[in-house]
Design a protein around this nucleic acid. Structure first.
Lengths: 177, 177
DNA sequence: TCTATAGGTTCGGTGACCGAACTTGCAAGT
DNA sequence: ACTTGCAAGTTCGGTCACCGAACCTATAGA
């Protein structure tokens, strides 16, 4: 599996990044991890990804130190972003902002706010109220202004119908379930 | 080809972005376009990408307005970033910075400078001399401090042995060849 | 003991990607 | 006119990743 996913001869940080997070589904899995998704079945249900692919990707990300596997009190393993994983936020944010700008009508974009001050965060990542550039641990995601008629019923979709700070688990008391 | 590359049900700008630029090679092609690569064979030689894949990607990117195909004076077509394509720079920069941080020893990273003032640009994208956040049209890429023993001989690799402003063609007078 | 659920693994089919060979179009040389 | 040369693809057979569906295993509760 090593060779075919590598970009040989490319002496460039971008090529190195894409070898790790450039495969199908990988960045969406990491995005969900920022949203607080931690369990296998929650990723699976929220993304609609085949089980085998999800298992392979999670193992790969754990191996490479983007996620860590943690035995929660429930006995179920959880996949949690490491510090290295959290540093992917600017890349995810930038790509999301580009996709929003060119492909999402404004009413369907999920607003992000600066958790500390409550200000809305603009496409460039700065808080429009206080001018800071909040990291993921200081951002809150909100539901779409124009709610879809049919909201999916998986736990992640349900949790994200309300405002939700990034990096906090979508399941209440995941450590005490 | 439509369905298998789409992420259905994902009501999110990131999913939309990845449908366009999330396939293998695509972001590297766009990175090369920022470096000033414009011709089919220059992409091909610099990236080592199979011809069929390159042809398919270039067509796809033209169709979606990231590149435009332009008949140069030489008679050869050139692929040039559109404004929409140039707006991908923050995402490319962020992923490159992450890859550099975790996978590239500092001596092998290509420095970028703010073309206007000459200051070095840090990982967060700000000029360390003047504090600005230069866009791609105001950045210059430099060769690696630790030059590799064997530098590839394709035109793009040769051009990038010297400092080179982004978005300017790697071939001299490409419009008057 | 029986059932339900989480978290996978296995399996056969399909499609993307690969390098290599082939084709097309233009342009200069002779 | 004919040939050579090269850029820019297209075609082709083989391989590998991804797909949905079925199956497996461990644990918890009734």
């Amino acid at each position: 599996m090593a060779l075919p996913r590598e970009y040989l001869d490319q002496e460039c940080g971008l090529a190195r990044s894409l070898e790790i997070v450039g495969e199908r589904w990988t960045l969406l899995i990491i995005r969900d991890a920022f949203y607080g998704v931690r369990r296998f079945s929650d990723f699976r249900d929220h993304l609609g990804i085949p089980r085998a692919v999800l298992a392979e990707r999670l193992n790969f990300l754990v191996e490479h130190g983007i996620l860590k596997r943690d035995a929660a009190a429930s006995g179920r393993d959880e996949y949690i972003l490491t510090d290295k994983g959290e540093r992917l936020w600017p890349g995810i944010w930038s790509l999301m902002a580009w996709g929003n700008e060119f492909y999402m009508p404004e009413r369907r974009r999920r607003p992000f706010t600066h958790t500390d001050c409550g200000g809305v965060v603009g496409a460039d990542g700065t808080c429009q109220a206080c001018g800071a550039r909040p990291g993921p641990d200081d951002l809150t995601i909100h539901p779409q202004p124009a709610r879809r008629r049919t909201v999916k019923s998986d736990p992640a979709s349900q949790a994200l119908k309300n405002a939700h700070p990034l990096l906090t688990p979508i399941r209440e008391a995941s450590s005490a379930q």
